[in-house]
Design a protein around this nucleic acid. Structure first.
Lengths: 343, 343
DNA sequence: TTGTAAGCGTTATCAA
DNA sequence: TTGATAACGCTTACAA
């Protein structure tokens, strides 16, 4: 059974394509009679308009794309991504847009961008961002960036990673800790933090700023940096490495909750008492509140970030020009995973 | 700056549209010279092919849609949805498809279906499924159902809700509990469980089957049904209602982990000792393992469900005909939230 | 009130 | 090796 098109209806109902199109899109300018007859035959023939043809004609799709830096499974398993997407989705739903998840296509982010039939993109924590920007510009649809180094003439949404990180570290220092490990998200830089980009860069800066207020710095002995995969397993593994080394720390400051929780689990498995190792995370994922001890961490407004990103993009799509770079605040959430030294 | 099209390139490079198209899609059948010249001018002009026009011509989009029963925020905040989408996304990534999230458009699921430029749909836990099926059929693209009452000639993926629920209830009964509340997901049926559909229906059946093995049934006194919203808050609220009633139960069997956790939190707030109220959930969301006491629950293979769904849909899109109704197994996961009566 | 026809940017068929 | 041209299904000036 071939697809029935607007032509078939026109023929069967005895009108032209134009009239049929009107019956669907501007019924008010047609006599009721006509509309009814057309809608009836459409119903009868089982007609469903073709969204692609419509887009072809109107020049827009009613869809926005979220550009993922990695495969969908890798990204969506980050516990804060759903909350971010909820924010984006809220605005989309409100404005009648649908959402497309756009991971690299056969390994190529360029191909992904070129293939996605969307009215605009939200990019999420891009890595190879310079090359990607070129492709995006070329693609010719509006886009905005989230969680990457902002670009002059492109709207951007970021959080105040630096302040958040600084507060986290300060809190640990205030509790008297002086043997500290910074648990960083593995980058391509293998610990060369001077070369960190975007989020990693800002968080690292925050940690260092706090240390410096106490006259401290990375010293390969008491204060050290260690990188791990941004997963529960990565956190656990890193913890084992840390604990095996000489000069055990009394506190760990992690760049992500999921790593912090992994580390804490590893510690529990090794029968290390809660008080022996203080921990502070980053992100405030839902699980952070429910683990035991509940994780002290830096909260960021994931949902609001998504909302703002979507609103900015839709505005841009609607032709408004506002290249503001927004920076949303973070907040230190005190729970039970940081202990005073010597208690 | 107007969008540059294949025509502009053809003109500038001194070839026809056809040749330009070949240079991109079948470069091997053109002399290197030609290809290079065309690709160069394309680069120079900043050309990016239009995916919509391509779809218009080829008749496919390289995108599949996941049809959500409610708004994106409502659905994606269910902690097992990301895992399901990860499964779907894995197959999509592997096969070079992208994923579109399709919530009701301005409240209308019909509009959503008609507007989505996709090659096929995965429907997720549909409610108004009969009406929706009509629209989907009319839309003319393949689709498969997940978590709804399966339809004869449509591929379907479900889990063995009934067995899972039965095992959950049996476990509670084995531990000696005889005062039990079934915490159900709020339906439109207001407790008339005979009218439950799909997932609710099967889970309820499982619970009742287990009870019946012990010669028990809903009796408005010792064994009762209560409905609540499928959220943490809904679980907490329901618990308060339960606890206020006469004949407090010793165990609660919940249709969802998130409700179970909400209930447990409420209990803790009311200073009720862990042993006073046993709890078993359903779904095995990530949080279930990390709450305290860790939640005994029924695990289902969310990720595999997504994979299977995506594979089935892609097969169908590729013209294979296989209307199998798959039923994936569930598994009772024993943790620490169920206590023996009298201990 | 309704119809004609152009146009959207590709791909694909067929011919040169 | 390349080029005309039709086709995809719809929207929208413009015309009648």
């Amino acid at each position: 059974m071939k697809k029935v098109s607007i032509n078939d209806i026109a023929k069967k109902a005895g009108y032209s394509k134009t009239t049929v199109s009107f019956a669907f899109n501007n019924p008010e300018r047609l006599p009721e009679q006509t509309v009814k007859r057309i809608l009836d035959t459409a119903e009868e023939l089982g007609y469903s308009p073709d969204p692609i043809a419509r887009s072809m004609s109107t020049g827009h799709t009613g869809t926005i794309g979220v550009l993922f830096p990695q495969s969908i499974p890798d990204v969506i398993r980050n516990p804060f991504i759903p909350e971010f997407l909820a924010g984006v989705g809220e605005i989309c739903t409100r404005e009648g847009f649908t959402l497309m998840l756009v991971p690299p296509l056969k390994g190529s982010i360029r191909r992904a961008i070129e293939n996605a039939a969307v009215d605009g993109f939200i990019t999420l924590g891009l890595e190879e961002y310079k090359a990607t920007m070129v492709v995006l510009r070329q693609r010719g649809v509006p886009f905005i960036t989230v969680d990457s180094d902002p670009i002059e003439d492109i709207p951007a949404v970021n959080i105040d990673d630096e302040t958040g990180a600084k507060e986290a570290m300060l809190h640990v220092l205030e509790q008297g800790h002086r043997d500290i490990r910074i648990l960083a998200i593995r980058s391509g830089r293998e610990g060369h933090y001077e070369e960190y980009h975007g989020t990693l860069h800002y968080r690292m800066n925050g940690y260092l700023a706090a240390l410096s207020e106490y006259g401290l710095e990375l010293d390969r002995k008491h204060i050290r940096l260690i990188e791990g995969a941004c997963t529960e397993y990565g956190g656990a593994e890193s913890f084992r490495v840390i604990w095996k080394g000489r000069n055990r720390p009394t506190a760990i400051v992690a760049m992500s909750d999921i790593m912090a929780i992994g580390a804490l689990n590893a510690a529990r498995e090794m029968h290390i008492a809660d008080e022996e190792i203080s921990m502070v995370g980053f992100d405030d994922i839902p699980m952070a509140a429910s683990v035991n001890p509940a994780l002290t961490t830096v909260a960021q407004p994931h949902c609001k970030k998504g909302q703002l990103a979507a609103e900015l993009l839709l505005n841009t799509i609607n032709g408004e020009v506002d290249n503001t770079h927004y920076v949303l605040p973070t907040e230190l959430v005190l729970r039970n995973s940081v202990f005073k030294v010597g208690e």
